[in-house]
């Protein structure tokens, strides 16, 4: 447990120090959301209707693009070798890294949502609903994206390839995230059903993500 705690603390610390990218994700999120009105027009009624979808798309892209360096940074400086060799199971180490990444890069997206909801003319209920669904859904994005980040290490490629690999896998999260937000705002579906599925997707990703990432790291090292 101390080993995993140490790993989480280290990753968060690095993300927050100079050179770390924790807040760039939020900036990206902000920029993507600000771009949308320029494409669809400043009509507040339309923006209110599209708001949850825009926020979810922005959060999806922001959380995937920041995953790029999750394992490559450790691979380049040799830390990954030692993490693989250690007495801590690699699956748990992967989960710890993903958790640290979510705290440093995913949670700020949730925190930024109310401000962005203001820009999109969402009322308090709608903003709350989107923030809640993001809180439940972004961990799934991180843990699914981690698989892509692990593959990126083995292939010595990152960036766009990672996005292409992982985006299709995150479609269910997007569907139920937006559905739950819309259900809370306009109905007619009850909020509970899609939100439960969203939580289930997150819980499933906690299992699948670390195992898949650890497997691809083990077989990909050379």
């Amino acid at each position: 447990m101390t080993a995993l705690g140490a790993l989480i603390r280290r990753d968060i610390r690095i993300a927050l120090r100079v050179g770390g990218g924790a807040l760039i994700g939020v900036l990206f999120f902000l920029t993507v959301v600000v771009l949308m009105p320029f494409a669809v027009g400043p009509d507040l009624v339309l923006l209110t209707r599209l708001g949850p979808a825009i926020l979810w798309l922005g959060a999806l892209l922001a959380s995937l693009l920041t995953l790029d360096r999750l394992f490559t940074a450790d691979h380049e400086d040799g830390s990954l070798d030692l993490i693989v060799m250690s007495r801590t199971p690699l699956e748990l180490a992967c989960a710890a890294k993903a958790l640290a990444h979510w705290i440093a890069a995913g949670l700020p997206l949730v925190v930024a949502t109310p401000v962005l909801g203001l820009l999109l003319n969402l009322d308090a209920v709608a903003t709350g609903a989107v923030a809640l669904t993001l809180l439940a859904g972004t961990p799934a994005l991180t843990f699914i994206g981690m698989i892509g980040a692990a593959l990126a290490v083995t292939m010595h490629r990152g960036g766009l390839l990672l996005a292409v690999l992982v985006l299709p896998l995150s479609i269910p999260v997007l569907i139920f995230g937006v559905a739950a937000s819309q259900a809370a705002i306009v109905g007619p579906l009850p909020f509970g059903a899609p939100f439960s599925i969203l939580c289930a997707l997150s819980l499933m990703s906690f299992v699948v993500g670390p195992f898949a990432a650890a497997a691809s790291l083990r077989h990909g090292l050379d």
Binding site: V18, G19, G21, I24, L27, L30, V34, P42, L47, L119
Partner: peptide, 30 residues
């Protein structure tokens, strides 16, 4: 509403984003 996509305010918002980008650039390199 607290926010309207008024031309002036929107320009200021873009300027704000550019400031944040610049600060991020300063922070990216030790």
């Amino acid at each position: 509403t607290y926010w309207e996509w008024d031309a002036r305010l929107t320009s200021v918002l873009i300027l704000f984003l550019m400031y944040l980008g610049l600060i991020a650039l300063w922070r990216a390199v030790e």
